[in-house]
């Protein structure tokens, strides 16, 4: 039973992701009330924040797999770490774009340096884009796995330190104009938010497994070709 479940993990995950996403979109549209202050534009929040949180989850997952590369000499973990960071960067770009659109509605500008989250994601984007540069300029092998794993571990140290630094930076670059009003979500808003976060995580997990399966298939085929060419 568990074995069958394991083999069918990806289709099940995809079905769950579809169902959750449909429910999330419906509840964003019909259950969550229109925000009293920001109006309709606040609805971006239900996608923007879950996407950002999912990107963090990917970076953390990538770092965890990187730790396993260094610690347990787990060779499969190298590919998993790479795929997780790859997905994290995609979600990071989505965060930047949806955040930028939200900034345009709320503050009338496409980019706001005073938005800590956006600036942090820009820094992380640059950092993890360099990860790909590193990965593609080293020949595949145990050394590349090590280098990439060390770099991925630096990422999880960088996230909190940068967050702190960027918060501090707002004080001297310019005083905070847009104060974020804390979590004043009503029950129905919170419900829609949680549902949408769950949907995003399920979507992310299925994309991760699809990408991983593709990459593994690719390397198996390469092996097969080598065996047949002999």
């Amino acid at each position: 039973m568990t074995r069958a479940l394991r083999q069918q993990r990806l289709p099940i995950l995809a079905v769950v992701a579809c169902a959750l996403m449909a429910a999330a979109i419906a509840s964003i549209a019909y259950v969550a009330p229109v925000d009293a202050n920001q109006g309709l534009s606040q609805k971006i929040f239900y996608f923007h924040v879950p996407i950002a949180l999912t990107a963090y989850a990917f970076f953390a997952w990538g770092a965890w797999k990187a730790l396993r590369v260094l610690w347990k000499r787990d060779e499969a973990a190298d590919l998993e770490s790479y795929v997780a960071i790859h997905q994290g960067v995609i979600f990071g770009v989505l965060t930047l774009v949806t955040g930028s659109i939200w900034a345009k509605i709320s503050w009338g500008v496409w980019w706001a340096w005073s938005s800590n989250q956006l600036v942090l994601f820009l820094v992380l984007f640059l950092f993890y884009a360099a990860y790909f540069m590193l990965r593609y300029s080293v020949d595949p092998g145990p050394q590349r796995a090590n280098l990439c794993a060390v770099y991925a571990l630096f990422g999880v140290a960088l996230i909190p330190v940068s967050f702190l630094a960027i918060r501090l930076a707002n004080d001297f670059i310019h005083p905070t104009v847009f104060t974020s009003n804390g979590p004043q979500m009503s029950g129905r808003m919170f419900f829609a938010f949680c549902l949408s976060w769950a949907a995003m995580l399920a979507l992310a997990a299925s994309l991760y497994h699809v990408e991983l399966a593709g990459k593994r298939l690719d390397s198996r085929l390469r092996e097969l070709r080598e065996v047949l060419a002999r």
């Binding site: 534009s41 971006i44 996407i51 995609i90 770009v93 774009v97 659109i101 939200w102």
Partner: peptide
């Protein structure tokens, strides 16, 4: 459509297009 409706639609559409 109001301006904010357009932007909200754009944000969701962008995510959709990327997927």
């Amino acid at each position: 459509m109001t301006a904010s409706e357009k932007y909200v639609a754009a944000a969701y559409a962008f995510v959709f297009v990327v997927v």
